[in-house]
Design a protein around this nucleic acid. Structure first.
Lengths: 207, 207
DNA sequence: CGTTCAATTAATAGATCTATTAAACATACT
DNA sequence: AGTATGTTTAATAGATCTATTAATTGAACG
């Protein structure tokens, strides 16, 4: 038997590249810098991944899927009433974005650099999203019929949840600088916004 | 009298650079490309603006101020009741973002590239924002006291408005690709979201 | 011990980008 | 006409980046 490919360095490269791409984007991250960060030769990056573009695409695809597949992961939703259910969905999504605050920026920037990439990935998640939305939509329509929720499409509702959560973590760095918040104060803001998003949406869809 | 400096080319460079920086960001836009787009020699960019960084900073500062100073420009707010006033503020901000859909991305990206830049600019707009918020806050507190609006800070209210409006135009390119919307359908979505944002916020702050 | 093959490095080609310098061009003025 | 000054271009230095190639290292195995 030949020597097994050592996956360690490949993984180190992936992790380091992921961190740098998320921090500084595709254009501002060079393979030279990735190698320097790791402490290895720059050619090694190309040995494992051939091109910078290819390395980026692997990471991007992973992050893209991760972000959309985990869009609304909540356990035991079935027994809940609609407002409670919606509350958990908002909070779960909020927490997911909180743990991946830079992915939306990565996706938005990559789309303006290379729209093809997103176009190719979209099919892979349409199924996942569709079934997830359908279940919630059934509840939503029941609530609307019962007069407890105003006329609103499931798309608009979900879009509002995603928007408000994503934009917090997108804008917070800039907002914190303008309002001169330190890390501790930022934490407080984030926690307050978590409650605020729930209130805003739950109240916002009342009839 | 000597020949007056010809401002035409300087303006052409500024306009072209602005367009390219907004389209593709700082790193992905080269002075070579700006010159090629204009049809002039690349050295001319440096003749007028010395460095790419300097050219970018001039444009960035302009866009930054433009975006924050026009944050809530509405006429004749005084005679309106609070909900009507808030509605007009949301719509005015929505329309402003609609006309400058790429500025938020420019600011967020530039901040992660060079936080100093934003730090230096923040003082110049704190005065403008403060007075604007104070007026609205007076109304807000009255509404809360009257029991028509739930407990919410003016910061949270304004942050929600800005968030929901900005994120629409930030996410729409990607969302439109995923949902396969053409330009006409995008327009429809934008117009529906404009109403939706008003409803969401107005309902969302009710007690 | 020497062979073999994967992993790693050194060296470098080739492209591109920023910025500078010197020369060419254009225009107003004497 | 000739000079002076602002504008534009040509040429290029110097840096950096991606990607490739050839050489070196190192570990398993017969």
């Amino acid at each position: 038997m030949e020597v097994k490919n050592n996956p360690t360095m490949e993984i180190v490269i992936l992790e380091t590249a992921e961190r740098l791409f998320l921090e500084k984007g595709f254009a501002m991250t060079s393979t030279t810098e990735i190698a320097k960060e790791i402490g290895c030769n720059q050619a090694l990056i190309h040995y494992y991944f051939r091109t910078k573009e290819n390395l980026f695409n692997i990471i991007f695809e992973k992050k893209f899927k991760q972000f959309f597949q985990n869009i609304f992961i909540v356990e035991n939703l079935d027994q809940m009433a609609f407002p409670e259910k919606l509350k958990h969905i908002i909070e779960a999504h909020f927490d997911m974005v909180r743990q991946n605050p830079r992915i939306p920026l990565l996706i938005v920037n990559e789309f303006s650099r290379n729209p093809e990439m997103v176009a190719n990935l979209k099919e892979k998640l349409q199924g996942v999203v569709a079934t997830l939305f359908e279940s919630l939509n059934t509840d939503l329509q029941a609530e609307i019929a019962a007069g407890r929720v105003r006329q609103i499409t499931i798309i608009d509702l979900i879009f509002s949840v995603i928007s408000i959560n994503i934009s917090l973590f997108l804008l917070l760095p800039v907002a914190a600088e303008i309002m001169t918040l330190d890390e501790k104060q930022k934490e407080i803001v984030i926690n307050r916004r978590r409650d605020e998003h729930v209130k805003l949406i739950l109240n916002g869809v009342r009839s």
